[in-house]
Amino acid sequence: MDALSVLLQNVHLFETKYYRLNGAGNWSYSLTRQDTILFYLVMSGSFCIDVGNGRREAHAGDLIMIPSAHKHTSYALNHHGEDAEPLDELLNNCKENTLDLHGDGDPSSSLILIECKYDKEMIRPLLSVLPSILPEISEESEGRFEVIDVEIRLLTLEAKHERMGKTAIINHWASIMMIECLRVYIESLPEATDNWLKAMKDPFLTKALVAMHEIPSKNWTIHKLAEVAGMSRSSFAQRFKDVVGIPPLTYLIDYRLRLAARYLRLQQNSISRIGELVGYASDSTFSQAFKRVYGVSPKAYRQQYQQQLLA
């Protein structure tokens, strides 16, 4: 398995929603979300997105990912987004997942907006190094694959019918779009960047990353990881820190504890068993390490999560 695949294997998108937005005239809207990834598929025409630190134009055939959506404004090319209405209010007039924006007649642009929730802990390191809006994947973009065009057609068809399994299908589509956007973005990273995602392209570091993610319970040492990477101990340790920004075992501990937090939320295994699954031989060592990061013991963390579900 490649490094990006193992990085994403515990990153799950859920509660995916989608809307077809047909804009005519000087349309605009604002959208505020938390803990949400947004995708725009531009079916026809053009429009602008402003995420607060710059204006981005998007055109027919483009795919755009906004990885950590807080607030942004979308508007027609010949508009400036003034007096943008909240999209949630406009969606009160949405029929069959389709919303006509500002005006009659043929739309000057047609978009599919997809929004989905994610597991905050598992995706945190990824979001920390992504730009507020990823470079658009256009029809001319190097690395664009036909799967995007197929997906657009399938999503358009799916939107027209209520069929069993629709939610599961759309969640999977959102994951495919995220992977497509990420790999095109990673492939475009210059060698001089300090973005740790360039480790995904490193032929030596990827071997160590895959090993840590696939077997987090193993008693990994710098020496063992260096052997997996095919490097000397000192060269591996230095290269990993230079590219990823932290030492290998610091990265491993962070991953183990994020994975433990996920297991505590979603599994019924005992705390002792979860500790074993992420590489801790004793309950006390696991509890101490977990509390240093999350501020509470594994037991208290699980109880807090269960209480939130009942609230």
Score class of each variant (00 low, 15 high):
residue 61 G to T: 09
residue 61 G to C: 14
residue 62 D to G: 08
residue 63 L to H: 06
residue 64 I to D: 05
residue 65 M to A: 13
residue 67 P to N: 13
residue 67 P to M: 12
residue 68 S to G: 04
residue 68 S to R: 09
residue 72 H to G: 06
residue 77 L to M: 15
residue 77 L to E: 13
residue 78 N to W: 12
residue 81 G to E: 07
residue 82 E to V: 12
residue 82 E to L: 02
residue 83 D to M: 07
residue 84 A to Q: 06
residue 84 A to I: 03
residue 84 A to W: 05
residue 86 P to E: 07
residue 87 L to K: 05
residue 88 D to L: 10
residue 90 L to N: 09
residue 91 L to Y: 02
residue 91 L to G: 03
residue 92 N to L: 13
residue 97 N to C: 01
residue 100 D to T: 12
residue 100 D to L: 08
residue 103 G to R: 10
residue 104 D to S: 14
residue 106 D to I: 09
residue 110 S to A: 14
residue 114 I to S: 03
residue 116 C to I: 06
residue 116 C to T: 15
residue 117 K to E: 07
residue 121 E to G: 11
residue 123 I to V: 13
residue 125 P to A: 07
residue 127 L to S: 05
residue 128 S to Q: 08
residue 131 P to Q: 13
residue 132 S to F: 00
residue 133 I to L: 05
residue 133 I to Y: 02
residue 133 I to E: 04
residue 134 L to D: 00
residue 136 E to C: 06
residue 139 E to A: 10
residue 141 S to F: 01
residue 144 R to E: 00
residue 144 R to P: 10
residue 146 E to G: 09
residue 151 E to Y: 06
residue 151 E to H: 09
residue 151 E to F: 14
residue 152 I to T: 09
residue 152 I to W: 01
residue 156 T to Y: 03
residue 161 H to R: 11
residue 162 E to T: 13
residue 164 M to P: 02
residue 164 M to G: 14
residue 165 G to M: 05
residue 166 K to R: 14
residue 167 T to W: 04
residue 169 I to H: 10
residue 170 I to H: 03
residue 173 W to C: 06
residue 177 M to K: 01
residue 180 E to C: 09
residue 181 C to M: 11
residue 182 L to Q: 10
residue 183 R to C: 04
residue 184 V to C: 13
residue 189 L to E: 03
residue 191 E to W: 00
residue 191 E to V: 04
residue 191 E to G: 10
residue 193 T to V: 06
residue 194 D to I: 11
residue 203 P to C: 05
residue 203 P to E: 03
residue 206 T to E: 12
residue 207 K to A: 01
residue 208 A to P: 00
